[in-house]
Design a protein around this nucleic acid. Sequence first.
RNA 1: CGCGGGGUGGAGCAGCCUGGUAGCUCAUUAGGCUCAUAACCUAAAGGUCGAGAGUUCAAAUCUCUCCCCCGCAACCA
Length: 503
Amino acid sequence: MKQKFYITTPIYYVNASPHIGHSYTTIAADTMARFMRGALKKENVLFLTGTDEHGQKIQKAADEAGLSAQEFVDKVVVQFKGLWEKLNISYDDFIRTTQQRHIATVQRALQLLYDKKEIYSAKYEGWYCTPCEIFWTQTQLSDSLCPDCKRPLEKIREVNYFFKISAYQSWLIDYIKNNPRFIQPASRQEEVLSFLHINTLSDLCISRPTQRLSWGIPVPFSKEHVTYVWFDALINYISAVGGFDAKGDYVSGWWGDDTQIVHMIGKDILRQHAVYWPIILKALGIRMPDTICAHGWWLIDAAKMSKSVGNVVNPLEMVDKYGIDVYRYFLLKDVPFGLDGNFSEEAIVRRFNSDLANDLGNLLYRTLTMVEKYYQGAVPSPRNEIYDERITRIVACLAGLHRQIEDALTATTFNFSLALEKIWEPVSMANKYVEDAKPWNLAKEGKKEELEAFIRILVDVIRQVGHSLSPFMPQTASQIEAQIGKNKINKGQPLFPRIENTR
RNA sequence: CGCGGGGUGGAGCAGCCUGGUAGCUCAUUAGGCUCAUAACCUAAAGGUCGAGAGUUCAAAUCUCUCCCCCGCAACCA
């Protein structure tokens, strides 16, 4: 494990409000960041999120809202930050592409690439739909009408700047093959490789004429152009944590060889991150990130989430209804990371009742009751002399738990659901052990020492589980800690009261 | 002949790379127990692993053919 850990979410495009997908990526990154803060020192972890604020669609959304672009993005950013606060997202830095630190780095990067002759200007030809403000290439068209609005298109010819990514295709293929951890999960790596084998990369158009779009970062070597949003956006990962020195070398405390760099993304933007981004870095002479981790999508009642269908899930509503940690738990547990998941409230309730109420919540509450009943609320002190075989097994399970979680999260593919399964193992063992130990008999028969050892191991399980849970469910972890107390319990109410079928 | 993902007990999935008694969670049923949130524990029922052919002593797993479902336009994690 490297000394430092730098994890990012994508910077979210602020032309609309955040939805379940944004919250999923961010919760996953937050959980990793929290876990790594425990594994490394807190100050050796940096968790970055932010917003992508330039481009045509934002300008259009701003126009529709009757605001200037800047006013519009300022407004939406507040929504995102509000959601992250509500979801308990522990980001260390929040970058906006309209910030000066970002603009300066993007412009410097462009100039460096231009000086290295990695960028050239060329005439660009395409079909333009003026009402939609969208460009279409010949191959996207079946007739001469706009695929979106079915209105006639206009043939436009203009000068734009292109980045020579085609020159890097074979380098990229080799790099991906030689670094199997670069794109995760492995199935995504195959996807990218097969894409690169089948297609020949064409140079990336990285500018837009100012006459058509003014809401962007000005290209330093042309007054008539602003930067294309994707080039602008990807640079955020380096502009947030460093900059170019006078010689044009990138300098950063978070991009050295001692840092593990992870970009958490959704599968829809894999192409940009696995193809464009490495090439940009390579051309600038900057090291590659360690891992690009692309997760799947959430389907809503088995259908693709879509603004036009109107089935977009608002995370705030779910959080208000079920609670932050229940929402976090559901997203991280219900689907193996990487695959598409199916979101429904029935599924949340099912998960809630079986895992949180029946298994974990019930274990905590029955234990609290026993401590209260048999020991008047005082937590028995550790007793090592009585160990039956089952206690030994539970102790071994607890001892190995941290390692198991670490393996699930770091050794393979950010397997959150597996990590949570591991945390539930001691919970289940403890619930079984209650049946075996029959504490009510121990109490009746006056077997004081056995009873104490028994209660003590339950308390140990709960403490350890609570601690292990803290990256995933931070609030729950502290609630458990508060209820089980140090020397004296604070019984309170059941942590996750079962949701009965009320429909 | 476009590309990719998938089809495993009622539901959701693992297993397939590296063939060898088909496994997990939930739901169902029966029993046990009472510390506990009708919770917990134990047990049972339930599958010709999409169809067919081939390789093999042996195929969910390898090969071939076919059938069906979902993405591959936009918003967008």
